[in-house]
Design a protein around this nucleic acid. Structure first.
Length: 565
RNA sequence: UGCCUCGUGGUGUAAUUGGCAACACGUCUGACUCUGGAUCAGAAGAGUCCAGGUUCGAGCCCUGGCGAGGCAGCCA
């Protein structure tokens, strides 16, 4: 731990860990785990949990396991385990050889279930699912005991064995813990431990036809792996008494029980202008509202990666949003701040025009070309310089010219002079329009003495524009992304509508861009700043013949802010 | 009308045995600038959900309210 870390105030989770360390509860060990279910792609909310668990392990010189919580074969798939592995590694974390699966523990769990029956703490119930639900009561009304609750140990043992051997149909029987049907905590009302599912499991194949429930697998998995602290999100808070009940009834040694893992809950991450539920993200993918799980508009880690987010920016974001128990909604602008901050330091600068306006420099010699020196990154001298070609016919951004400019518009206008970055001062002399009055071209003159961007007489210009030589420009597809939803809270809908009605129909706009030749050899995941426009990232669809860029985020734009007022 | 958890600037997170409510993002000024970017300097913005109580002193302790979220899958 460095000094900066040591002086930073602790969050409530670090306080718990340090307290346990101080009391030597686990002999100085900190051993955590990140336990995703492989039923979907990881999103930025998971990134918070990943950074929390792996980050804490790093900070306290401990370990963090990756454990797939794969107790429900009908929802899970190896495609998801592969993506989860890739995403965590990409974020920069490593679980070494500690990649575990809840399904690794099926034998042990079964043995514990048998033991619980022997202690008369579990029974086989053959009520239907509807009956079980009806008998459970409601949060305000106690439940009713099942008619099968008091079978003999022998009968229960026999029935469980036969459930396991495949004798019964799905849904016909369950194994339940015998706890308290009148508990004020619904989860303690004889929770289901095992259900019958004749389904193929991505790892255990057809070995099993009964599968443990989350509650009967999670705490025990933590225990088996010798986890010291089990961090999960708030919705599991009401499960904690059950987490403890199973372990208390499984572990016979009181000393082991005293030091075993404890669950601590924290508030999950929420972001405005997006949704963070795997179910809804799956729906967006399946119904083709987005192209895939890694569509750059998705809040998935793979989507953010493709969008151009860096691991550092996400880790920094996770670190800075902090962790607490109260519900929170983080402004997506804060995530954007984090990526701008990182890319500002790292990104290669390049000039590109996305909405071109042709400029002819009338006093520039026909056929002449020259190379002008440009800085690759003003924030990082070591990134060096490059040459940008200049010629008589250029493109500038259409927004950078106004025939009749308002008061605070500094850019190009008739008879006004501006600088072309790293090139020359130019002044607008004429405007050419088509028959319907649209501007098709502007005619400018340049000042040869201002080569490189400064005029020897010291005169100032109020604006510097980016530009590209028409002849040398590389054509590219540029994908401009915006927020996926129109409103902060996509769940807020009119009567009878779903979150889909809040989808932003303009979240993707495709443009043909003209980029300086420097980007010719770009490869997927390269980051650039297109000067004055934003940060861009080469897409995986990109080819040398047809480069494709995704806009990660715009630059901050105080003019746009002013213009919108 | 049950149980659990949580209420601190617009947003998020702090305030370690009670001691002038701090930091970040955002917002607004100004400086600088070959990116209306970055950077730098500054400002506004909460008296800590409410009401009582203990105390010289309460965001923190006590009591009572109010509000928000979670819990009734053979999902996790």
């Amino acid at each position: 731990m460095n000094n900066e870390e040591a002086s930073k105030p602790l969050n409530f989770i670090e306080t718990i860990i340090e307290e346990d360390l101080k009391n030597n509860k686990h002999s100085g060990r900190v051993h955590l785990r990140f336990p995703p279910e492989p039923n979907g792609y990881l999103h930025i909310g998971h990134a918070k949990a990943i950074c929390l668990n792996f980050g804490l392990a790093e900070k306290y010189n401990g370990k963090c396991n990756l454990r797939f919580d794969d107790t429900n074969p009908v929802k899970e798939d190896t495609e998801y385990v592969d993506s989860i592995r890739e995403d965590i590694h990409w974020l920069g974390f490593d679980w070494e050889d500690r990649e575990y699966y809840a399904s690794d523990y099926f034998d042990q769990l079964y043995e514990w279930a048998v033991n619980l029956i022997k202690k008369d703490k579990a029974y086989v119930d053959e009520s239907s699912a509807d009956e079980v639900a009806a008998h459970r009561g409601t949060p305000t009304k106690p439940g009713l005991e099942s008619p099968y609750r008091n079978r003999s140990v022998e009968e229960n043992l026999d029935l469980l064995e036969r459930m396991k051997s495949g004798e019964f149909k799905d849904g016909s029987k369950v194994l339940r813990a015998k706890i308290d049907m009148s508990s004020p905590n619904m989860h303690m009302r004889d929770p289901v431990m095992y259900r019958i599912k004749h389904a193929h499991h991505h790892r255990t194949g057809d070995n099993w036809c009964i599968y443990p429930m989350y509650d009967f697998a999670h705490g025990q998995s933590d225990f088996i792996e010798n986890i010291t602290h089990s961090f999960c999100t708030l919705e599991f808070e009401v499960h904690k008494p059950l987490y403890d009940w199973f372990l208390d009834n499984i572990i016979d040694d009181p000393e082991v029980n005293r030091t075993r893992t404890r669950q601590t809950e924290f508030a999950r991450l929420n972001l405005n202008y997006t949704v963070m539920s795997k179910r809804l993200l799956l729906q967006l993918v399946q119904e083709k509202h987005v192209s895939s799980w890694d569509d750059p508009r998705m809040p998935t880690i793979s989507g953010l990666r493709r969008r151009g987010y860096t691991p550092e920016s996400i880790r920094n974001f996770a670190d800075r949003v902090g962790v607490a128990k109260r519900e929170n909604i983080i402004d997506i602008g804060f995530l954007e701040h984090c990526i701008r901050e990182d890319l500002n330091k790292k990104a290669q600068r390049v000039m590109g025009v996305l909405n071109p306006l042709k400029v002819t420099i009338e006093n520039y010699p026909e056929g002449q070309e020259e190379l002008l020196a440009a800085v690759n990154n003003p924030e990082d001298e070591t990134m060096g310089m490059r040459k940008v070609p200049f010629s008589k016919t250029l493109y500038i951004e259409r927004d950078d010219f106004m025939e009749d400019p308002p008061k605070k518009f500094f850019r190009l206008a008739p008879d006004r002079e501006v600088r072309l970055r790293y090139a020359y001062f130019i002044a607008c002399k004429d405007v050419i329009k088509d028959t319907s009055g649209n501007i098709t071209e502007i005619i400018c003159t340049y000042d040869p003495a201002s080569r490189g961007g400064n005029s020897p007489d010291g005169r100032k210009v109020k604006a510097t524009l980016h530009w590209v030589s028409a002849k040398h420009a590389v054509e590219a597809e540029v994908r401009l992304y915006d927020r996926l939803f129109n409103i902060e809270d996509p769940y807020k809908t009119e009567e009878g509508k779903t979150f889909l009605s809040n989808l932003n129909s303009e979240s993707l706009q495709i443009r043909k861009g003209y980029i300086e030749p420097f980007i010719k050899d770009t490869e997927p995941l390269d980051h650039f700043q297109f000067e004055r426009l934003g940060y861009f990232c080469t897409d995986k669809d990109s080819t040398p013949e047809k480069p494709v860029f995704n806009r990660t985020v715009t630059l901050r734009d105080s003019w746009a802010k002013h213009a919108n007022k």
